[in-house]
Simulated scan of single mutants.
Amino acid sequence: MSLPIDASEEILSGEAVAIDAQPIGFILRAAGAIIDMLIGFAVYLAFVFLGIWLGEIGVFDDATARIYQVAAIVISFLVLPVTVEVAMRGRSLGKLAVGGRIVRVDGGAIGFRHSFIRGLLGVLEVYMTLGSVAIITGALTPRSQRLGDLVAGTYSQRVRVPALVTLPPMLPQGMSEWARVADVAKLPDRLARRISQFLSSAAMLSPAARVRLADELAAEAAPFVSPIPPVPSETLLVAITAVRRTRETRALALADDRAERLTGRRVRV
């Protein structure tokens, strides 16, 4: 038995650290979309009033007025949203208000192609249907993706989330000598993630479940550790995590120091 994890929604870094890439909720996404819709309509009304004024002073004839009207629609509901989204790297005024940003399904930044597809389909599903198509598709998809997101391969990611207070794992008392000689290899990403989740939520588990999960995770981690100390499974998991963290931090510090020394030599040359 293991802790429930939705692997399809999980993005892991190279050291099995889960990137906080939560999709924004349906209600917040709808609120952001309404803000962007109102801005689009406001820009269009500004074009309309400008067109009426230009018509009154004789600048436009009938043919020019029709061209102007089409241009106003295209600029207000397609060009402006796409330009803003590209310039702000997946954000808009509505998304800023609700703390969201459009990203690719793999968590990467979007480009012009993604924004153009979203904007083009947005004219249909957001403006021409007053958001009804977007509401239906958003309510039926796990990440609240509208039709444009499904075609472009994007979703709205939450970027304003409460900071998680995490305490670094401390080596259990009495295991310093073991840590000095222990060979602790890098754990598989999924296993490292499960151990991290278990340690962070162990206090909320029932005693029996806590012991059972600790035993199972310790058994899976055992092939990567030598020697195995005669300690409870949960203590072993804490020790493994602490040793790996300490050694990886030290390795990163050495790599940074080496890079600085190499850079300094190149500058002097």
Rank of each mutant, 00 (worst) to 15 (best):
A185Y: 02
S92T: 11
G108P: 06
P172W: 08
L45V: 12
I24K: 03
P142H: 08
G111D: 03
V181F: 09
A192D: 10
G14T: 09
A63I: 09
K95M: 09
A71Q: 06
S196N: 11
S226Q: 13
L3K: 01
M128P: 05
R210A: 12
T241Y: 05
D189M: 11
V211F: 08
L120T: 07
G51D: 02
D106K: 05
L199R: 09
S2V: 11
D183I: 15
P229D: 05
A109I: 07
S92C: 04
G111Q: 05
A214Q: 07
W53P: 01
A208W: 14
Y155I: 01
L78P: 00
V211S: 14
V43R: 03
F49Y: 13
A208Q: 15
E15Y: 07
R258G: 09
L120M: 12
L164Q: 14
A218W: 01
Y44N: 09
A214F: 00
V48C: 01
A33C: 11
I110S: 07
P162R: 13
V98N: 05
G153R: 10
A255E: 15
A202R: 06
G100M: 02
V70F: 09
V123Q: 01
T137Q: 08
R244Q: 15
D62P: 00
D256Y: 03
I11V: 13
L50Y: 10
F41R: 09
V123T: 07
V105F: 00
Q22D: 13
F112M: 10
G138L: 11
A31K: 12
D36S: 03
G153C: 01
E234A: 07
P168F: 03
V59T: 06
V225A: 04
G148E: 02
A221I: 13
A16T: 03
A30D: 10
V98K: 00
M175R: 02
V84W: 03
S206C: 04
T141H: 12
L50A: 15
M204F: 14
F49I: 06
L236A: 05
L205F: 13
G55A: 10
V184I: 12
I39C: 06
G264Y: 10
T83H: 02
I5Q: 08
A139Q: 13
G90Y: 02
V151K: 03
T129S: 11
T241G: 01
L96V: 12
R190F: 03
E220W: 06
A72T: 06
W178I: 06
A209F: 09
I11T: 11
G40H: 01
E56G: 15
S76H: 00
G119V: 09
S13P: 02
S156E: 09
E234K: 04
V231W: 01
A203E: 15
L12D: 01
L96K: 12
A7D: 07
V70Y: 13
Q69D: 15
F198W: 03
D183S: 14
L130A: 15
G108N: 12
Y127D: 05
L50D: 12
G32Q: 05
A71P: 01
D62E: 09
A208M: 14
A139E: 12
F77T: 04
L252S: 15
R118Y: 13
S200A: 15
R190V: 09
D20M: 11
R101Y: 07
R190S: 12
V165D: 11
G122L: 04
Q145V: 10
A209P: 04
L171M: 08
G108W: 08
T137N: 08
V184C: 07
I52K: 06
S206V: 10
S196E: 02
T166K: 14
